[in-house]
Design a protein around this nucleic acid. Structure first.
Lengths: 203, 203, 203, 203
DNA sequence: CATGAATGAGCTTTCATTCAT
DNA sequence: CATGAATGAAAGCTCATTCAT
């Protein structure tokens, strides 16, 4: 495992293990040494591929964003109805968040003070996930891409709704009397349902 | 500053500084030594007032919950209309969250794995804040206190919406093109508006 | 428990608790704070009765020496035969050692570097325990008190034999295949038996 | 001294200093920091060579056991007479103990509660030292290796005798009027002499 | 006689990072 | 491309002790 033929294989291995560590033990226990031990190389070697811990984290986040993007795209496969598409996106995002807790936390929750600023070019790619939501919303309203600002804001509102539910769940702030699955259903309904409601009003 | 005239002044000062440290660097870098340095006492002294780090955090959370409760209660003063009351609660909660990021993070974001279990009796007091929302919702539906479970869930949905918005903002995940205040308005509208919408349907 | 009527009751209580702590958790965990907590007074109060931790330890050792002395004396009650008396002393010492492990360690094992020099006047009292052995040995040889040096040395030899057995047992260095009780019997036999053996030779 | 030419020099230096610290202040005050300071490296560096404090202690014990073993073996060189061999072993052990108090304490006095369990494979090597005694005793009785249990016990009795003398000396519990060398002679005589005495009886 | 407040030094251990090779 | 050695800072916490009251 230690000696790889392909030179960039090690980089991949490091990312893999870092992800595993992250998912298994959380950000707090994510240490260069542990990753190195798991990969089978020295801690120093990691610095050959990543400037520092933050750089590694950024790569990790980026990877997560790609995965999320693919999952979101996949969820839209063959779905035509605009409202349905919104629904699918929410569901898909929710699933990703619930299945990748620690990952999700680094991606969307980690306090900026603990990380260097996320680089612009990476951010641009990450933004595509939000755009999926915005586009879907625009489609619902029948005007593809126009009035971007409003769609972007609406996307943020929906995002906030789901993100809030996820993060309350992750940090175990939900009351014990709440049935989690039912709650999540209600959350998605509220996020998307409101849209229709608003639309009905408009029409 | 070391020797305070008032005996419990130091305790208050520690709590204050702990809050400051939290806002400045987040939970992960909250250290007893840093707090002590900021306060102007030794780390050991902190242990005179708090059993350990977790105890200090619990005190912080509790303090925040009390403040929030008072603020929420205050916001309802003289407001009769049930829907208006919901609106007020949301606004008030939002204001608190935005103005007290330092508190807010420990109160609602800090992962339990990083902290001893929050003591039951403190939790019971904290729960009152959620109850305010649930009660207001019940009032909207015209059936005071009945169907508690559904009201509790609805309260959670609203809470998730606002909490999500706040936490995205705090962790600086909101797109730069988003006008924060406008976004927050939209969030509250969505949280409460949906209620009405649903009610209209029902009627 | 905290407020005693008799002023010197507290001193006694401190010693009692210190002994308990010592027996229960060993020297390493013996802390002024713990003792104070157990007694129900503040750590500061201990300093009213004992100059410092070493002073307290000395008092503790002294107490132990007195107890041992009484136990040794008691064991001789009604026993006339000189050799029997030697035997009884050994047995009695052994019992004390086995039943008061942590106590015993402080009395006879604690590294001098961890304690101020044991005060002369206390030492003199402690010496009486050895004297009991030396006197008994002298009696065996039929010459009461004469040739003190040789008797003192012999007493030390016997003492070393038993102390060695006890201390190997306490620090769990005895092989698992050794039956402890049988071993201790053999040890006492060896300590005393040799005496007789030597005497037989002499006669 | 920080950067050593020979890579494993530091490891040796650490062990050396640890031993020195032990003799100077005893186990209780043995601290990684102190060792590091004495060696001239940082405390962190110690962790490059030893997993933790216990690991360091185990290494120290092991080293001591090996040395003792070699010394015991050496003392038997060319000695044929069984009783003489017993005598030599005792003398040799005694010399080791007196000349290596630093080792000796960790090896035979340190309470297990203060240390991780001594690893089995190391213990097996350490046991060889006791076996030397047991074998020598069996030889005296003319039955090589048989009746192991009894020989093992006798070995323990002798061991206890010498160990007791040594440990009283180390912890400075011997009376000032005792001539140490003479005392030690008497101790060895007692340990071995008794054997012969017993044997004479038997014959 | 007794306390409450405070200190400073100490502990073991982990961390991200660097540098010479 | 990769390593082994080393560092300095920091963490949470406990300790014996002092001092003013």
């Amino acid at each position: 495992m230690a000696r790889n033929t392909n030179p960039s294989e090690l980089r991949a291995a490091i990312l893999d293990e870092a992800r595993e560590c992250l998912i298994a033990e959380g950000y707090l226990s994510l240490s260069m040494r542990k990753i190195a031990r798991a990969v089978g190389c020295t801690a120093t070697s990691i610095y050959l591929y990543f400037q520092d811990k933050d750089d590694l984290l950024h790569a990790l986040i980026n990877e997560g964003m790609e995965r999320l993007h693919n999952q979101l795209l996949g969820s839209l496969d063959g779905v035509q109805d605009p409202v349905q598409r919104c629904h699918k996106l929410c569901r898909s995002y929710l699933e990703f968040a619930l299945e990748n807790r620690q990952y999700y936390e680094v991606m969307f929750l980690l306090h900026p003070a603990h990380m260097k600023r996320y680089p612009k070019e990476l951010y641009r790619r990450a933004r595509r996930n939000l755009d999926l939501f915005a586009d879907a919303l625009a489609a619902v309203k029948g005007r593809p891409g126009s009035e971007e600002k409003e769609d972007l804001r609406s996307a943020h509102v929906i995002w906030a709704q789901i993100h809030g539910a996820v993060s309350l769940h992750h940090s175990q702030r939900l009351d014990v009397n709440i049935d989690v699955l039912g709650f999540m259903d209600a959350v998605v309904d509220n996020a998307v349902g409101h849209l229709l409601c608003k639309q009905d009003e408009a029409s």
